[in-house]
Nucleic acid binder design. Structure first.
Length: 202
DNA sequence: AGCACGATGCTCT
DNA sequence: GAGCATCGTGCTT
């Protein structure tokens, strides 16, 4: 089952935390690619000086102002696409950046798309899954969209680390140091956890 | 294994 | 024309 609209229509920090362990699913050329989300970051409103919405609504960031549960995909550093899930009520610009996944289905194809290099990182996972401009605005609650998010593995708080967001070099404090990044300890969701989740969901 | 830097092109001023 | 929510290479340790 895809995560419903009201999952995203909540405080962004909570959504970012709860997306850890969720299944990111992509249908690419008719093939299913799946990864468990292992790293996220929250970007929260116009006052958050680390957030694209700090300058108000522009063509680029407009999707963040829209309804929750849609993808906000943008291009940066000349090469890279970044995948976000829009959160909170329509009109309030916020989103969760998906920074890393653990491939669990179609891993060979993703590796191939990366010329054998790893898919670990926000720009790498979008390349591995073939997510670009055309993914901007896609409804992540709709499994017919070719890109969506499903409930996945439950990862307990004891396995999740909070830390400052990455790459905000010129962002002033306190925003630069807000612990709005969530990472699975050891960067890996164990087989035991996955197995537990599978059993409990049957 | 870790650091430094150049690539690269879109977005906004 | 500057600034990026980064990546890969090539260098040093």
């Amino acid at each position: 089952m895809t995560l419903p609209r009201n999952f995203y229509d909540r405080p962004t920090l909570q959504v970012a935390r709860d997306l850890i362990g969720a299944r990111l699913v992509r249908i690419l050329d008719g093939v299913k690619l799946v990864g468990l989300i292992t790293e996220t970051e929250a970007y929260i409103g116009e006052k958050d000086l680390g957030c694209h919405a700090r300058v108000g609504k522009t063509n680029r960031n407009a999707m963040m102002f829209g309804p929750p549960g849609h993808a906000y995909v943008y291009f940066t550093y000349g090469n890279h696409w970044m995948l976000n899930a829009v959160t909170e009520r329509e009109g309030f610009p916020a989103a969760v950046l998906i920074r890393a996944i653990q491939p669990i289905e179609g891993a060979e194809i993703m590796s191939k798309r990366r010329s054998g290099r790893d898919s670990f990182g926000p720009g790498k996972l979008t390349q591995a899954m073939g997510i670009t401009k055309s993914g901007n605005g896609v409804d992540l609650t709709d499994s017919g969209s070719g890109l969506w998010i499903e409930a996945g593995v439950h990862v307990p708080n004891s396995r999740v680390t909070k830390s400052p967001r990455v790459g905000l070099y010129s962002v002033p404090e306190p925003w630069k140091s807000k612990p709005w990044r969530f990472v699975v300890k050891g960067w890996k969701i164990s087989n035991e956890e996955s197995a537990t989740s599978l059993r409990s969901s049957q």
